[in-house]
Design a binder for these strands. Structure first.
Length: 265
DNA sequence: AGGTGGACCCGAACGC
DNA sequence: TGCGTTCGGGTCCACC
């Protein structure tokens, strides 16, 4: 199996990686090679020899739980991917037994790796989108008091963890909500709809991404499964699949944003 | 508080 | 063809 993705990893892509890592529970980390100084100081001696107990995820952060009580936590940022192979381009390589090599490949070198306490894992961000304890009422309380654009609010990892640019655009499209709406203007019903839409996008991405995930695809290969399911992201200038109006592209809170000016209100 | 813009990177896409 | 330029994207940080 190849832990692989071609797009900026958001919640679903990270969850797929986590599932792949879960299979390594019970393996021992025999060796750690830090090949890129940009990764900073990693306490290699606290990792080598430890046994992997499981794999966890919170938002876009995921990690290997070690038997020492620590978590080897990864954030893939823009271009990071984990490959179950010994890649010559790796920034970091682990050798697991059993399991073999695991390489962090990351052309733009933004990904981060840290060793942290289990209790601290994910504590820097809000509830995960898929956390069962996250209700629409709670989301409304956490995000609904802000005058910021609702897209900026759902992208804010402190408010809600896991949503990235494509999920935000797709969820807002699905909920027929304008990305520019001040979060304060959303009703309870709007928040319920938005949370449900975001979860639906995540579920669909998991299903589609899971399908493309186990196969190797060329980087310049044709469309992946999830991309085919996008209703607005990447479709600026095309007709809206709901109302037929032309999808517009703009910038909201510094992020490229595609939406339907007619039916997202 | 929140927005804005720069920084971090480098592959890809684009322009000439 | 080949060179140069621009852009993007998650997050943080400095600055209004």
């Amino acid at each position: 199996m190849r832990l692989y993705h071609r797009r900026v990893p958001e919640l679903a892509e990270v969850e797929i990686v986590r599932r792949g890592l879960e299979a390594m529970a019970g393996a021992r980390i025999e060796r750690v090679e830090v090949l890129d100084p940009l990764l900073g100081d990693l306490a290699v001696s606290e990792i080598e020899g430890r046994r992997v107990e499981g794999a966890i995820r919170h938002g876009k952060l995921f990690g290997l739980e070690l038997d020492s009580g620590k978590v080897l936590a990864f954030h893939l940022r823009l271009t990071g991917s984990l490959l179950r192979e010994r890649s010559p381009r790796a920034r970091l390589r682990l050798e697991l037994a059993p399991g073999g090599p695991l390489s962090l490949v990351d052309p733009r070198r933004f990904a981060t790796v840290r060793l942290e306490d289990r209790a601290g894992f994910g504590s820097g961000s809000g509830p995960d989108l898929l956390d069962e304890g996250l209700t629409a009422d709670l989301l409304a309380v956490r995000g609904g008091r802000s005058k910021r654009a609702v897209k900026a609010v759902i992208l804010d990892q402190q408010v809600l963890a896991g949503v990235g640019n494509y999920m935000a655009d797709e969820a807002l499209w699905d909920a027929s909500l304008s990305p520019m709406r001040p979060a304060t203007s959303l009703s309870q019903a709007d928040w319920r709809l938005l949370l449900s839409s975001a979860r639906s996008v995540a579920a669909q991405a998991l299903a589609r991404g899971g399908a493309s995930f186990s196969d190797y695809r060329r980087v310049d290969g044709s469309l992946g499964e999830m991309q085919e399911a996008f209703n607005c992201y990447g479709h600026a200038g095309e007709p809206c699949r709901r109302c037929g109006s032309t999808l517009a592209k703009t910038v909201v809170s510094g992020r490229g944003t595609t939406y339907c000016p007619s039916c997202q209100i």
